[in-house]
Write a protein that binds this DNA or RNA. Structure first.
Length: 721
DNA sequence: ATTTTCGAGATTTTT
DNA sequence: TCTCGAAAAT
């Protein structure tokens, strides 16, 4: 076929091999910038155009929704087919499965994907209800609880979750006495009440359905003739399990990954799945793709020097396909404001003198909080920018509120109630909500019912409770007959929500809402008659602000983590300081190596120009702040310093890094508690150490109050007895 | 007595 | 954006 020949002609032999390797188990180890995604989409096109596979029989797993979108566009261009099959994240794909088959476990067909904020809210409700005295629980503590809650999420509990009627689950929760039972059953009860599933649940429930019904499992196994997975180095246990099940029938599995880009071990990713793939899948062929097409040879020299400092690593280096370019530029500023100002000034220079549009420039950073000084500088210089982040950390409140109104109409669940009952202000403040929660807990009803039963009480006399109830109930009667796009427009204006925003002058939020409405309209068009409210709520569940397409010529700001898999002509890597990048709470060599891989990912995003900036000054505790070791690791000879660093700064930094390294080593020796050691955990109580989990740098512990043998405990939370 | 408003501070990373 | 605390507003 003519088109295919021209396509394949642009690929190198390794890529060509990857594209046309169609049978069995194939693993591609690919360096950064080697054209992984390209090869993947070309392979998809090859399977469709040449082998004659239907797109719907191919599952292509990407890491983010954004990556899915890009992949879909590429493949559409290559195949000319509007049907691009299943191109999705594991989580998104599970949503498709659950949409079709959740009936098998009698789970409500419509569900909400919970994000961390939702989980926080639910945990808080549990704390309040049970008077656990953690009312001042901070976000950090809540995250701690998520860790703990994961610990309970063993398959046997899912029997409870999926098979128990809500009533019984409630009773288990109410009867629960130990803290762990309260949290576990409380969480499940809350989840069930609002039809929520968290990210892990999506996969767990899917696997559970497969284990329950061979028919359903076989249906999906047979449907997916080919499975391809991108970013395989960051796959976690649950995803791996799902992959094994899905590929077990046709046994056509194609994975692509780069061990040097493993940056999600804190989320359960395990590099062993990639490294041991050959042994676990007999007959596996391995293809190496080491040529880098993205960056200039000059940038790659610095990058190779950096990643080579990692000890636990398969030695390989990126081979440049491009010519030499400019050396990465390092800038040392005396404080964060000056650093930001310098970046702003340099951005303007690039735009005006070199004609580089703002949208080609991206600022990367380790942690969100460094954006503050950057934003100030860009606002001052009137440089338009957009913050991209994988999670809706900032700026999506109005969308969640709008959806909560929709959910409130359909389900009247507590989670939505808490979100919007007092939004806009209805004089339903803290005290009154707390009263409702207590009432609901004793009566065992929902918060909405509690409000309904109490609306005539004195306490609610000066509130707009009655209006709120009739608003929700009025729409509840007719939501099935009205298109969602009309419904949302109406409720936002009738409730006074939009008006509130208008008074506040939040034009941006109104724009966001307008965009939401438009996206609902688009959705309705694409689904024809079937675009029901429930479906839409599910459709939008996995959306993040990363996925909205870029509009005008704007600078992009994002964390290094969310830049994974992307590339940009110009990259500024800012906040390159000890204590920021690497982050200050790094307490092991493994963690430091992951941090270095993260720096590697950051630097390899750059195509033509790379900048690294830092700011001296003081740390939180008043100690001096030094430039990042990763600047040193990149090799002074590979970098350029327009302003030479302060006299002796480099030497001092080296000394500082050495002393930190000694600390890390000492720490490691110190934490080794012997097997059999009695300890106390702040939540689980007393227990005995039964072993060490090397992978996660944690102790395996048998807790007296828990039955299971194999509980994992975290390093710091232990008190020696 | 309770809610609302306002300003300041936050210091990993997120499907 | 969320959470705090103090002060203003009903």
């Amino acid at each position: 076929m003519e088109i295919m020949e021209t396509l394949l002609g642009t690929l190198n032999p390794a890529q060509l091999e990857a594209v046309t390797a169609t049978e069995g188990y194939i693993r591609v180890i690919a360096g950064a910038g080697s054209g992984k995604t390209r090869a993947l989409s070309h392979r998809f096109a090859y399977l469709v155009n040449e082998v004659g596979i239907l797109p719907g029989n191919i599952l292509c797993v990407t890491f983010t929704n954004k990556a899915s979108q890009e992949m879909r566009q590429r493949i559409h261009a290559l195949t000319g087919d509007n049907d691009t099959g299943y191109i999705n994240t594991f989580h998104g794909f599970c949503v498709s499965i659950l949409q079709e088959d959740s009936y098998a476990v009698e789970y409500p067909k419509s569900f909400l994907v919970l994000d961390n904020a939702d989980i926080d809210t639910m945990l808080k409700v549990i704390y309040e209800e049970r008077g656990l005295g953690l009312r001042d629980m901070t976000f950090a503590k809540a995250r701690d609880m998520i860790e703990i809650q994961k610990l309970f999420k063993k398959p046997e509990y899912y029997l409870d979750m999926l098979t128990l009627p809500l009533e019984e689950l409630k009773q288990k929760y109410q009867k629960a006495e130990t803290l762990e039972d309260i949290i576990f059953y409380g969480y499940l009860y809350q989840e069930r009440k609002c039809f929520g599933l968290d990210y892990n649940d999506l996969i767990k429930v899917t696997l559970f359905i497969f284990s329950r019904s061979e028919e359903i499992r076989l249906k999906w196994q047979k449907r997916l003739e080919y499975i391809m997975i991108d970013e395989f180095q960051d796959i976690d246990g649950l995803q791996y399990e799902l992959m094994c099940v899905l590929s077990a029938y046709h046994k056509n599995l194609f994975v692509v990954g780069d061990p040097d880009q493993t940056i999600y071990t804190w989320r359960g990713a395990n590099i062993r799945y990639l490294l041991d793939f050959g042994e676990n899948f007999p007959g596996c062929r391995t293809i190496m793709m080491m040529l880098n097409y993205r960056s200039t040879a000059t940038i790659l020299r610095a990058v190779n020097s950096l990643i080579d400092k990692n000890q636990e690593r398969i030695r390989k280096s990126l081979i440049p396909a491009r010519e030499e370019g400019e050396k990465p530029v390092c800038h040392f500023a005396s404080n964060a404001e000056k650093e930001a100002a310098w970046i702003a000034q340099e951005v303007m220079r690039l735009k005006e003198k070199e004609g580089i549009p703002l949208k080609s420039i991206t600022i990367l950073y380790r942690a969100h909080y460094v954006t503050r000084s950057l934003e100030e500088a860009f606002i001052k210089e009137k440089i338009p920018y957009a913050i991209y982040s994988g999670t809706p950390f900032f700026g999506r409140k109005e969308i969640k509120d709008a959806l909560a109104y929709l959910r409130m109409i359909v389900y009247r669940d507590d989670l939505s109630f808490l979100r919007i009952a007092n939004e806009p202000k209805r004089n339903l403040g803290e005290q009154r909500i707390r009263y409702l929660q207590e009432y609901a807990a004793t009566k065992g009803c929902s918060l909405f019912e509690a409000l309904k039963e109490n609306q005539k009480e004195e306490l609610f006399a000066r509130t707009k409770a009655v209006e709120f109830i009739s608003l929700i109930e009025g729409y509840a009667e007719k939501y099935e007959t009205v298109p969602v796009s009309d419904l949302i427009g109406e409720i936002l204006s009738v409730s006074g929500y939009e008006n509130d925003l208008r008074i506040q002058g939040s034009q941006e939020r109104l724009d966001n809402l307008a965009e939401l409405k438009q996206s609902i309209r688009d959705y309705e068009l694409s689904c024809g008659e079937e675009g029901t409210l429930e479906q839409y709520v599910r459709h939008i569940a996995l959306f993040t602000n990363m996925d909205t397409p870029e509009k005008e010529d704007r600078l992009k700001l994002m964390t290094v983590h969310s830049a994974k898999g992307l590339e940009f002509p110009v990259v500024f890597l800012c906040g390159m300081n000890e204590g920021i990048f690497p982050s200050r709470k790094i307490r092991s060599i493994q963690a430091m190596e992951e941090e270095r891989r993260l720096a590697f990912v950051a630097m390899t995003r750059a195509r033509d120009h790379l900048y690294m900036t830092e700011a001296d000054g003081r740390n939180f505790d008043g100690s001096d702040r030094y430039p990042s070791r990763f600047i040193l690791d990149a090799g002074e000879e590979n970098l350029s310093f327009p302003l030479p660093p302060r006299e002796g700064l480099i030497q001092k930094t080296k000394e500082y890094v050495d002393s930190m390294n000694r600390h890390i080593l000492k720490d490691e020796n110190r934490i080794l508690l012997p097997e059999g050691q009695r300890i106390r955990h702040k939540i689980f109580g007393e227990g005995t150490i039964t072993g060490i989990d090397q992978e996660r740098e944690a102790y395996r512990i048998h807790f007296d109050r828990l039955d299971s043998e194999r509980n994992i405990a975290f390093r710091i939370a232990l008190e020696v007895l």
